[in-house]
Computed example of a mutant assay.
Amino acid sequence: MHTANTRSELRLPTIDSPKRMMNGRLFDFSREVAVMAIVNRTPDSFYDKGATFALDASVAAARQAIADGADWVDIGGAKFAPGPPVPLDEEINRVVPVVESLRGSGAVISVDTFHPAVALAALRAGAHVINDTTGIHDPAMADVVADSDATLVITHSLAQPRTAYPAPTYGDVVHEVVDFLRAKVELATSRGIPLDRLVVDPGHDLNKNTLHSLEITRRLAEITALGLPVLVAVSNKDFVGESLDRERGDRVEGSLAAMVFSIVQGARIVRMHNVRAAVDAARMTEAILGFRQPAYLRHNQA
């Protein structure tokens, strides 16, 4: 007679230096997931189409995200997608006032930029993280972050900033993403950034098609095996829409499914638009994994 195994063992990633102090808060990424909210001070963002472009709207959106449970807030002044360059002064004027307005909020403040000058201005204004979606395209970015106490997010992408990369091809997308990230981590450390101030992101949909992004999600454990905290940005991406035949604005459930699967595979920072839903899904996943206790116990209690 077959006896079922009543205990399921998840093989969770081993993270080197999982405890990170940011903005006075200790994150333990061996047992914790941080939800990163997205605030775009751009008139042409792919998701909100400029709804938070105005300063008061962006600050209000950031504060609402924090109220909804966001641990981090990621502020962007220029989208990743192809388009004309945004002047450096303009990008700085978009992000710095939001950073300044969030000082004292308790949230980790991240700035999404690939320009070292913008990163420097943001760090001086009080940012704690620089989120470089071009994977240190400009090595000076590593120098700027090394001279601070900030964290750098290194993301896999292949194109020159703000340029198209049609029909991307890979021999093995996961292996190539891992090799890229490993090389960029070595670059960052050679420039003086310690490993405990680095995070990596496989770059879902960035110079990748839907099959590539699904493969990265399916095999995310191979990326978390690098030993660094992994950030995933799966929210409302085209790979979700194409998988489900859903337009932008109707991809929340698919995004949450991709997020939860990524957490189980080892992701520890999740960049999401729909913050309240993402926070609940992340906290429930933590409870199932045994990372956190339920908020209370009443059901069937004596």
Rank of each mutant, 00 (worst) to 15 (best):
T210F: 10
D44A: 03
T134F: 12
L10D: 06
G203F: 07
D138M: 01
I288Q: 02
R63Y: 01
P229W: 10
R271V: 08
V185R: 10
F29W: 14
E247L: 07
G249H: 05
A233K: 12
F114I: 07
T151M: 15
E9Y: 11
H115R: 15
R162F: 01
A183S: 13
V270H: 01
R63F: 02
D149V: 05
P229C: 13
P82V: 09
A81M: 13
Q160W: 03
N209Y: 02
V260E: 13
S255G: 11
A221M: 13
H2L: 08
P85S: 14
L214N: 01
L102P: 06
I223A: 05
F180C: 04
R7A: 10
G171T: 14
N236T: 08
N207V: 13
V232S: 09
A122S: 15
L226Y: 01
E253M: 10
L88K: 02
E242I: 03
V99K: 07
L231A: 05
A67H: 00
A34L: 04
V73L: 07
L123W: 09
S213Y: 06
V260F: 13
D74H: 13
V173H: 12
R298C: 08
R41S: 10
L152V: 05
V99E: 08
E222Y: 07
T134S: 10
A188E: 10
A233R: 11
V264R: 09
S235M: 08
E176M: 05
R298P: 02
V275M: 02
P168R: 01
S157Q: 02
D48E: 15
Q160I: 05
H115G: 02
T224W: 11
I130F: 13
R218C: 10
R25I: 10
A146K: 01
G249S: 05
D48A: 13
L211P: 12
M284T: 15
L195A: 09
V177C: 03
I109T: 03
R191W: 06
M21P: 01
N131L: 10
G171M: 05
M259G: 15
L181N: 04
K184F: 04
Q64G: 00
R251K: 00
D56C: 12
A81S: 14
A159E: 03
W72D: 00
V275L: 03
A57H: 11
F27E: 00
